[in-house]
C-alpha cells in the first residue's frame, strides 16, 4: 500500500514538473504556432537567475520567483520583438531561429557565469518531509505540485477570464479579423511570448534545487515537454494537463521497474507508435495544414 502511494506520488511529482515545463511551451505554440526550442534555455535562465539572486543578493528562492518571472519574461519579450515576429509566416524556420536563440542564451550564460555546475539551496522551511498516509513525502515536491496547480489556474483565468485573454483568443482564432476589431495583435503576441518565457523561468527556478544547474540543462526538459505537447495536443490546456499526468505516472512507473533511461526510451517508442495510429486524436488540427 505504502509502496503504491509512494509510486503514485513520485509519478505525480514528475508530472507536475512536466506540466510546469510544458505549460509555457504549449501556450506559445497554441497561440502563435511557434515551436520554441529555446524554451529549455529560458528554463535554464530561470535557474541561473535564482542562483544569481541567491548568491549575490541573498534573495532566497520563493521571494525570488516573481523577480525570475519578470526577468526571464523580459528576455522573452525582447526575443519576440527582435527575431520571432519576422518569422510568423514561416513556422519551420521558427524552430531554427529559436534553436539559434537557445545557443545564444546558453553560450552567453556559459561565458558569463562559467560552465561549472551551480547549486541552488532549497528554502530551509521546505526541506523536511511530511507524513501522509503512512509515507514520507518531501515538502518541497508538494510545494512544487501546489504551485503548479496555482499557475495552471492562473493561466486558465488569464486566458478565459480577462480581457487580455479574450484578445489572445481572438488573435489565435483569426488574427486578421481581430486586428479589424482594433486588437493590437503584435502586442498580444509579444506579451504571450513573454508570459510563456516567464513560466519557463519559474519552472527552471523551481527545478534548480532538485538538479544541478548548468548551461545545457535545458535540452532534456525541452524534449520531455515536447513529448507532452505532441501527445496531448496544444489546442487545449486540458490536453497538456492530462498528458503530463499520464507521462509522469508512466515514466515514474517504468523507471521504478527498470531505470530512468529505459523509461524515457519506452515512453518515446510508445508515443511514436501512438502517432502512427491516432495522429488526429493526439495532434491539433494545425498539423494537417502544415
Amino acid at each position: 500500500m505504502a509502496d503504491t502511494i509512494n509510486q503514485l506520488s513520485t509519478g505525480l511529482s514528475i508530472a507536475s514538473i512536466l506540466l510546469l515545463v510544458s505549460l509555457g511551451l504549449a501556450i506559445i505554440y497554441g497561440t502563435m504556432g511557434v515551436i520554441n526550442l529555446a524554451h529549455g534555455d529560458f528554463l535554464m535562465l530561470g535557474a541561473y537567475s535564482v542562483w544569481f539572486l541567491q548568491t549575490y543578493f541573498g534573495i532566497s528562492l520563493i521571494p525570488g520567483l516573481v523577480l525570475v518571472f519578470l526577468m526571464v519574461g523580459a528576455v522573452g519579450w525582447l526575443v519576440e520583438k527582435t527575431i520571432i515576429r519576422h518569422l510568423y509566416a514561416r513556422p519551420l524556420d521558427t524552430i531554427l531561429a529559436t534553436w539559434g536563440i537557445g545557443i545564444l542564451l546558453e553560450q552567453s550564460v556559459r561565458l558569463g557565469a562559467g560552465a561549472e555546475l551551480r547549486y541552488v539551496q532549497m528554502p530551509p522551511s521546505l526541506t523536511s518531509a511530511v507524513h501522509i498516509l503512512g509515507t514520507d513525502q518531501s515538502t518541497y515536491r508538494i510545494f512544487i505540485f501546489v504551485l503548479t496547480v496555482l499557475l495552471l489556474l492562473a493561466t486558465y483565468g488569464l486566458i478565459f477570464k480577462t480581457s487580455f485573454g479574450m484578445r489572445l483568443r481572438a488573435v489565435t482564432q483569426n488574427p486578421e479579423i481581430a486586428k479589424c476589431f482594433g486588437v493590437n495583435a503584435s502586442q498580444v503576441y509579444s506579451l504571450t511570448f513573454a508570459y510563456g518565457a516567464g513560466l519557463a523561468g519559474i519552472a527552471g527556478a523551481l527545478i534548480s534545487p532538485l538538479k544541478s544547474v548548468s548551461p545545457d540543462m535545458g535540452i532534456g526538459f525541452v524534449v520531455d515537454a515536447f513529448m507532452v505537447v505532441v501527445m496531448g495536443g496544444v489546442e487545449s490546456l486540458l490536453g497538456t494537463v492530462v498528458s503530463s499526468g499520464l507521462l509522469g505516472e508512466l515514466s515514474g512507473g517504468i523507471a521504478y521497474l527498470t531505470n530512468d533511461t529505459l523509461a524515457k526510451a519506452v515512453v518515446f517508442t510508445g508515443i511514436v507508435i501512438l502517432i502512427r495510429f491516432r495522429p488526429q486524436g493526439l495532434f491539433a488540427v494545425r498539423m494537417r495544414r502544415g
Binding site: P91, L92, M287
Partner: peptide
C-alpha cells in the same frame, strides 16, 4: 505514414 510533417518531424 501518419502524415506527420514539418515541425513535428523535427521534434520527434
Amino acid at each position: 505514414r501518419a502524415r506527420v510533417t514539418g515541425v513535428y518531424v523535427a521534434i520527434i
